[in-house]
Design a protein around this nucleic acid. Structure first.
Lengths: 364, 364
DNA sequence: GTTAGCACTCTCAACACATGAGTGCTAACA
DNA sequence: TGTTAGCACTCATGTGTTGAGAGTGCTAAC
């Protein structure tokens, strides 16, 4: 476990094996290794060292007469100690900066671009997790008439999150009803966090408050709760899932490809995994992941807006991935986003309870 | 081309071949056909007829000694004349109804459920196209403060469509500015269709109107236009893309699978194709589609809300699909949605220019 | 017009076989 | 004692062969 178990030469050999394997994907043998990396020792010696490394759990063997393949443990050592975390070439940096610049005043587009960059530059499947904030506070709740039996519920949070949903009513309504309901709900929930509101016994208190509207309320409250829930649920966006076809791991193994894509299709599960990771740059390799991702690796990083952690992005792919390069790209992109959206001034606009987002125009 | 070219027996044989091929996916030979469908003629006779059918373009041969496979032309004939469009079994109908019932007062969730049902019941990849309305009219435009350099732009259309987007400002703003801007823009664009507003020379007229805000306006207008554009762009949601792995067409042919998934990943192109199809139930088979879908078939249908066409749903899969069953499912689902969301009363709520969605509360 | 018979074609799976990359072990070497 | 050359052995992979099976097309008889 401790890299000190390994002498200098073993480390050097291990590193060489990993380097070769990362680029070719083929098990690497003693002979070809001694050719590609001149380290002044014969294949036989390399074989002896490889045998030791295998005993120590850093290498495995697909079958007797194949070369060696790094184990998850080897990748872990590589990531922690050996990998080249050198700077990204200026060309790549430039590409990232200019692409993110395109939409620098819009967080949503920037995030989309980031996901595209990430999958393009790593040739892996990338994902971006949009903000999820249990603690955002509600600002106002609004019902808009659409037609005689449809209204749109709109919920706005202080942090600018807006969520809306069309609701079909089973009872007739009047505009006055809607306005009253908007007013009461805004009054009741403004300034409270989403999770706090969800924990309240809404149906009871609401129908008590507004007996005149109880029919309407019955239609509306379940949708209101669902919409709040949706505001809490982080939105996972993925990109480049067909990149895996260019990797020999997948393009020669239909079963593996199928498993991978099935796994990606279960978004809620994947979202859970991503949400529950550590902050900062986190790399998990092979069996460090849950059972259904045990031959995949995941790299994630966070981005901040105004210094506050709001989202997470990363890639998923086979354990054989170029950890150094991928990590540099992820880091650079997430830093760049955070930097673009850093706080310019420190005084937030104070909340004015009269500004509830209404244009409030009086023309006619 | 005209089915009258084919006598009764040829039609019967063709239908039998298609039926067998649809279930097995294997080329069907004269001998096995005479066994599975007793039609009182010998394999030799069937062979003669098959040969004729091949000359007429209804069948092909993968190679000399293989059985026959229906051509796209045969599928077209099958879909137009031969296929069994019998009612869905009550069990399936029940399943559809109860699933759609779950969320009957919310269009969005209903649509999502519809897509899931569709892919589950057909074992194909389903998609749903959300409304796209060039002609929806704007109702109001609103800017909400988030922090010192971020505001949220919110656009609400009369039909209940709400779109919002966070905008990063490069200049400071005051709440008064935002309200003024909301007011002016709402005044300028209310009641106009999205496409009409996009066609206007917004930047000029806007900065003329509001010289005091020209700095703000420069930041805001491009995002405003982008957001309008986003409102026009139909949103395509897909489901069950990994279903294809259970089909022998794909699970034995990695290249085909890759092409299929790459094609699905280019959402804007696929959206275009779907948007530009005919109304009602439309089936396109193999080479009736564009080059990159020439060995796939597409079936789409529309759903209505309040009698008005608003969206489209369908499936995409190999030309070997159970057209009868799939069509019945799509029809039943789309009819069911349309029915659930049919107009209950006929009088739309008249637009009240004072109700612009503001909760407009006065408490403090 | 229909059918039986037959020669022919082509795919596919099974098998044998050679090749080559790679290992592990042993014995010699520095 | 660590390093290396040599060698026997293993195993995946590719290739060629072969036989079975499914199917066709043609011909001649019914």
């Amino acid at each position: 476990m401790n890299p000190n178990d390994l002498n200098e030469r073993k480390l050097q050999i291990l590193q060489a094996i990993i380097a070769d394997f990362l680029t070719t994907g083929e098990p690497v043998g003693s002979r070809s290794l001694s050719k590609s990396h001149d380290m002044g020792i014969s294949p036989a010696t390399i074989r002896n060292e490889m045998s030791d490394l295998e005993d120590m759990g850093y290498l495995t063997h697909p079958h007797t007469s194949a070369g060696r393949v790094p184990s998850d443990k080897a990748y872990r050592l590589y990531v922690d100690e050996l990998m080249d975390t050198s700077e990204l070439p200026e060309e790549d940096k430039q590409k990232i900066r200019s692409k993110l610049m395109e939409s620098r005043n819009e967080l949503d587009s920037t995030i989309e671009h980031a996901a595209e960059l990430l999958s393009d530059m790593t040739n892996l499947t990338s994902f971006v997790l949009m903000p999820r904030k249990d603690e955002s506070k509600l600002k106002y709740i609004n019902f808009l008439p659409v037609d005689s039996n449809t209204v749109v519920l709109m919920i706005v949070a202080e942090d600018g999150q807006v969520m809306n949903r069309a609701i079909r009513l089973s009872v007739p309504y009047t505009e006055e009803n809607l306005q009253l309901m908007s007013k009461v709900m805004t009054h009741n929930y403004r300034g409270k966090s989403i999770s706090a509101v969800m924990a309240m016994d809404i149906i009871d208190s609401f129908t008590n408050d507004m007996q005149s509207l109880s029919g309407l309320a019955k239609d509306v409250v379940p949708s209101f709760l669902k919409t709040l829930e949706k505001m809490l649920n982080a939105d996972l966006v993925m990109n480049g899932y067909s990149n895996i076809f260019s990797l020999p791991e997948f393009s020669t193994d239909m079963q593996k490809t199928q498993n991978f894509l099935k796994m990606l299709e279960d978004k809620s599960k994947l979202t859970d995994v991503i949400v529950n990771r550590d902050k900062g740059v986190m790399i998990t390799i092979g069996d460090e992941n849950s059972e259904d991702m045990k031959d995949l690796s995941l790299i994630t990083a966070d981005y901040r807006v105004n210094g506050e952690l709001v989202g997470r992005l990363g890639v998923i792919g086979p354990t054989r991935m170029k950890y150094g390069k991928v990590t540099s790209v992820i880091k650079y992109i997430s830093d760049n986003i955070s930097q673009t959206f850093e706080l310019k001034e420190n005084n937030d606009v104070k909340d004015d309870s009269n500004n509830d987002g209404s244009a409030d125009e009086q023309d006619s």
